[in-house]
Amino acid sequence: MKKTLIAFGVLLVIYLIGINTIPPYIESQRNPVVASPPYTVSPAAQTLYDRLDFISDLHCDALLWGRDLTKRGDRGHVDFPRLREANVALEMFTIVSKSPAGQNMKSNTTDAFDNITPLTIAKGEAPQNWFSLINRTLSQSKDLTDFVEKEGEKALFIKSKADLEQLIEARKSDKTVVGAMLGIEGGHAIEGSLENLEAVYEAGVRMIGPTHFFDNEFGGSAHGESNAGLTDFGKAAVKRMNELGIFVDLAHCSPAIIDDVLDMSTEPVIVSHTGVRGVLDSQRNLSDEQIQRIASKGGIIAIAFFDGAVGTPELPNIVASIRYVRDLVGIEYVALGSDYDGAVVAPFDITGLPLVVEGLMEAGFTEDEIRAVMGENVKRFFLANLR
Rank of each mutant, 00 (worst) to 15 (best):
G186E: 04
G186Q: 02
G186D: 07
H188C: 08
H188E: 14
A189Y: 01
E191G: 12
E195H: 13
L197T: 00
L197Q: 00
Y201N: 02
I208A: 02
G209I: 09
P210Y: 00
H212I: 09
F213I: 09
F213W: 14
F214W: 09
D215W: 00
F218R: 00
G220D: 02
G220T: 06
S221N: 08
A222I: 05
A222Y: 03
A222D: 06
H223Y: 07
G224T: 07
S226N: 07
L230S: 00
D232G: 08
G234H: 06
A236S: 15
A237P: 00
A237M: 04
V238W: 03
K239E: 14
M241L: 13
E243W: 09
L244K: 13
L244W: 11
I246Q: 05
V248E: 11
V248P: 05
V248A: 15
D249H: 03
D249Y: 01
D249R: 00
A251R: 02
H252L: 05
H252K: 06
P255Q: 04
A256V: 11
I258E: 02
D259R: 15
D259W: 05
D260N: 12
V261Q: 07
V261S: 05
L262R: 02
S265Q: 07
S265E: 08
P268G: 01
P268R: 00
V269H: 11
V269T: 13
S272R: 01
H273K: 13
G275V: 09
V279R: 00
L280I: 07
D281W: 10
D281R: 08
N285Y: 06
N285P: 03
L286D: 02
E289W: 10
S296R: 11
K297A: 04
G298F: 12
G298S: 11
G299A: 09
I300M: 14
A302T: 08
I303P: 01
A304T: 05
F306P: 03
G308Y: 07
G308K: 10
G311F: 14
T312I: 14
P313G: 13
P316K: 14
I318D: 07
I318K: 05
V319D: 02
S321L: 09
S321W: 07
R323E: 15
Y324L: 11
Y324H: 15
